[in-house]
């Protein structure tokens, strides 16, 4: 532990601590925290982007309007293509999901910021909401026929019970993988950068190496921030297709 004795203190998980925003030790269910602050920042940024961006109502869009239109048409096309026409009524729901996740992910990359999406509590709520929506909408639309998606009618009869068991297990694992994928990616990226930052603090001139690594990882994390938001949203579309579409698997 010679390095540690010189003062190498790397605590990559410290940045994920949730602390009351205005001091104090007690954390009740309504105490504003550092996470609340960044949830608020995300709300403000989304509102500013989407309301200001659409306020000009210009036929030839400006910059902000282009961004809001891009988000709108991107998600709209995704819903239409993946979920099908019946899924179009879930478009606002997916807009909320994507704008919230992508904004939180990117805001979290600001040095010193806090990424709400790095917390399993947040991603689990999002994923469980998707799971419950899909299940309820599926039974609402198809009644007991919704269970047909577990019964693979194209497979040989002997294999169908086995496949049904696998399909049911994978169906219930969905919210878990859905939430861990997003939360884990964001958390891991931030933790890795923190570890490199810890190295940079004690290496003197050689710090250029971890600093270069941080810069590289930062670029990668920007990509991850957008890609994970995209993945979360498109998976939601795929799951919704089971509930509203004709396609079975």
């Amino acid at each position: 532990m010679t390095v540690a004795d010189q003062g190498l203190v790397i605590d990559p998980m410290h940045q994920f601590q949730i602390v009351p925003l205005f001091g104090g030790d007690t954390l009740t269910w309504y105490t504003p925290t550092n996470q609340t602050l960044w949830l608020g920042v995300a709300v403000v940024v989304i509102s500013a982007l989407m309301i200001v961006g659409s306020s000009a109502k210009a036929v030839i869009p400006g910059r902000t309007q282009s961004i809001s239109e891009l988000l709108y048409t991107f998600i709209h096309n995704m819903v239409e293509e993946v979920t099908g026409h019946e899924g179009a009524k879930f478009f606002p729901y997916l807009m909320v999901l994507f704008t919230f996740i992508v904004t939180s992910n990117i805001l979290g990359l600001i040095p010193g910021a806090f990424a709400p999406t790095s917390h399993i509590a947040v991603t689990a709520v999002l994923a469980l909401a998707v799971f419950l929506t899909v299940t309820l909408v599926g039974f609402w639309n198809k009644g007991i026929g919704f269970l047909g998606m577990f019964w693979v009618s194209s497979a040989p009869l002997v294999l169908r019970p086995v496949l049904a068991a696998i399909e049911i297990i994978s169906y219930f694992v969905r919210p878990l993988s859905h939430s861990i994928r997003l939360g884990g990616n964001i958390m891991a990226g931030h933790a890795v950068m923190k570890v490199f930052a810890g190295f940079a603090g004690v290496m003197g001139l050689a710090s250029i190496v971890p600093i270069a690594a941080i810069a590289t990882i930062y670029g990668l994390e920007l990509l991850v921030a957008v890609v994970q938001a995209y993945v979360f949203t498109i998976l939601t579309c795929v799951y919704l297709r089971d509930a509203v579409g004709q396609a079975h698997h």
Binding site: T28, T33, Q35, L39, G40, V96, F100, H119, V125
Partner: peptide
């Protein structure tokens, strides 16, 4: 978790209405 979930739901509801 209760704190996180509460504020998350608040944020999502606001975003939903704004959008």
């Amino acid at each position: 978790w209760p704190n996180q979930i509460f504020w998350l739901v608040v944020a999502l509801v606001i975003i939903y209405f704004v959008l």
